[in-house]
């Protein structure tokens, strides 16, 4: 060790190493400042925009969780409480009851409850829902579109890169502020039914 102090070659080496270290340090600082300038303290979470969603079914299969964090969400305020619910019944169903062969949902996750004539309430049993979007498609095509797929933030593990987002054909996934983590379509437009 004592020789080191006197060895000019090692001293020069030490000097170079030190300069590089300082440079690297400054570089890191610069990078941090550059990036932090537009960084937000708020966290972001993944969410899908139901207005872009085409219900391809990849949400059910492409989540890192075997049981996807995307589930169907029911916006009751938009629901028409239809007897013949396009989200509940398979197309062509003749008897409107809860029989298995009539249900569109493969996991029996939609509960149908009589409210008053002729209205029925539909509730999603979230633990059963697999996020396949079949009901969402049915409701969007024939009803008000009150059934919507959403990433349930209490189930989501908040991957850095959502693996559904990567495979979503509609590019419906985006990072949204964690403070407002849902993109439910709430507004309803009432227009006169067209002639023709």
């Amino acid at each position: 060790m004592e020789e080191t102090a006197g060895d000019p070659k090692l001293n020069r080496r030490e000097f170079i190493v030190r300069s590089i270290r300082v440079t690297a340090f400054l570089g890191l600082g610069g990078l941090a400042v550059l990036v932090a300038e537009k960084s937000g303290s708020g966290e972001t979470v993944w969410q899908l925009d139901p207005s872009k969603c085409i219900q391809c079914g990849r949400c059910a299969t492409n989540c890192v969780l075997a049981h996807s964090a995307v589930r169907c969400t029911h916006v009751y305020a938009m629901c028409g409480y239809c007897d013949l619910c396009g989200g509940y019944f398979k197309p062509g169903t003749k008897t409107l009851n809860t029989a298995a062969e009539n249900q569109l949902c493969p996991t029996n996750a939609i509960k149908r409850k009589f409210v008053e004539d002729p209205f029925f309430e539909y509730t999603i049993d979230e633990p059963l829902c697999i996020g396949c979007g079949k009901c969402v498609k049915g409701c969007g095509a024939f009803g008000n579109g009150s059934l919507q797929l959403q990433v349930r933030q209490n189930i989501c593990v908040h991957c850095n890169q959502c693996s559904i987002a990567r495979s979503c054909p509609a590019e419906a996934f985006s990072r949204v502020p964690a403070k407002k983590p849902y993109l439910l379509k709430q507004i309803t437009l009432e227009g006169p039914k067209s002639g023709g």
Partner: peptide, 19 residues
């Protein structure tokens, strides 16, 4: 044969089993 209740029952049972 939509009137066949026995068949319907059979489907329901099979469906339940499969699930």
């Amino acid at each position: 044969n939509p009137g066949d209740d026995q068949l319907r029952q059979q489907i329901r049972e099979l469906d339940l089993l499969a699930r």
